[in-house]
């Protein structure tokens, strides 16, 4: 089972850049003068790489958050990180002069990042790293941001509202490799940090008391993990928008396939998170509709039912 999936995933990754609305003549890809060259290297390749890196970040972020918050429904999005990014981007779209609207992605990064800072500040002021209360603060922040976003919709014109809505659906339309490097770097930074704290993660996966008694600085480890997840999610959201469901579905699916504790699933979750988003993007690009379907719609359509199916299956096998 694992091997079949791995082979399927590798095939998918290697062919996905070649599949799309326009058939590409493979020989022309390496010819810098051909239109295929541009199409492949400026549009398709960066798109696949961004999809893979973002998917990897969201899935691994979900895995880490679920361990730290000891709640299998938690993802970075639950803490309001994506809502923060969305709000800031909407702000950028409305208030930046038309010539600078392209920079609204910088806004979204700072939106995500300042949400994280705000969360840490609350945690300090309330003198609690109790994950339950931090989670509630995150949910409250999300609602607050949603309300503020409504206000922005209300004062924006039609064109601006449309841009904001499109952003919230997520989009992998990247051109060239400039943004791509940031997402790749964020993905591998997160992977490195998580692998570095693998042992601590396993202790957290037993219980906080147990981790404490084994000599782990829980507060410090939690802060480090949450910080790096949030930074990389911030980078990802700023480039592709908030894409839901990956962080929730992938860790669970991988857990059901591998049947191992989360600390051993860091690499598979990272890898298949990436593969999942590449697959969803492939579907979005190849449905043959006039314009492509937003990626967030596809992830939810694919992820939602599959997730429910898995929960049902798990319940049966447990008796």
């Amino acid at each position: 089972m694992k091997l079949t999936i791995l082979i399927g995933a590798l095939i998918l990754l290697s062919v996905s850049a070649f599949m799309g609305e326009t058939q590409l003549d493979i020989q022309k890809i390496l010819d810098p003068d051909a239109i295929e060259y541009l199409l492949f290297w400026d549009l398709r390749a960066p798109r696949v790489v961004v999809a893979f890196s973002s998917g990897a970040i969201l899935a691994l972020g979900g895995l880490v958050f679920q361990a730290v918050f000891r709640n299998s429904l938690t993802t970075p999005f639950t803490l309001g990180v994506s809502s923060g990014a969305t709000l800031a981007t909407a702000f950028g779209i409305i208030f930046l002069p038309a010539s600078l609207v392209a920079f609204s992605s910088i806004f979204s990064f700072f939106g995500a990042f300042s949400t994280v800072l705000l969360l840490f500040l609350f945690a300090r002021v309330l003198n609690t790293m109790q994950t339950g209360s931090l989670l509630l603060i995150g949910i409250a922040l999300s609602f607050f941001y949603s309300a503020a976003l409504m206000v922005l919709y209300y004062i924006s014109d039609l064109q601006q509202s449309y841009s904001i809505i499109r952003f919230t659906m997520g989009s992998l339309n990247v051109v060239g490799f400039t943004h791509v490097y940031a997402v790749i770097a964020a993905a591998f930074l997160l992977l490195g940090v998580t692998l570095r704290y693998k042992h601590e993660l396993r202790l957290i996966l037993t219980s906080y008391d147990n981790a404490f008694l084994k000599g782990i600085e829980i507060k410090k480890i939690n802060l480090i993990l949450l910080f790096f997840v949030s930074i990389s999610v911030g980078v990802s959201v700023s480039v592709v928008g908030p894409i839901g469901f990956v962080g929730l579905v992938i860790p669970h699916v991988i857990k059901l396939i591998y049947k191992q504790s989360s600390d051993k699933l860091i690499l598979p979750v990272f890898f298949y998170g990436g593969v999942f988003l590449v697959l969803c993007d492939l579907i979005a690009r190849n449905l043959g509709t006039v314009s492509e379907i937003p990626i967030g719609v596809v992830t939810s359509f694919v992820g939602g039912p599959f997730f429910i199916y898995l929960i049902g299956k798990r319940k049966n096998s447990n008796g």
Partner: peptide
């Protein structure tokens, strides 16, 4: 108290 259902007894004891 163990949160992750896939941690077995041997793995749990390794942490000690």
């Amino acid at each position: 108290e163990v949160f992750d259902e896939y941690i077995d007894v041997h793995e749990f004891l390794e942490l000690s």
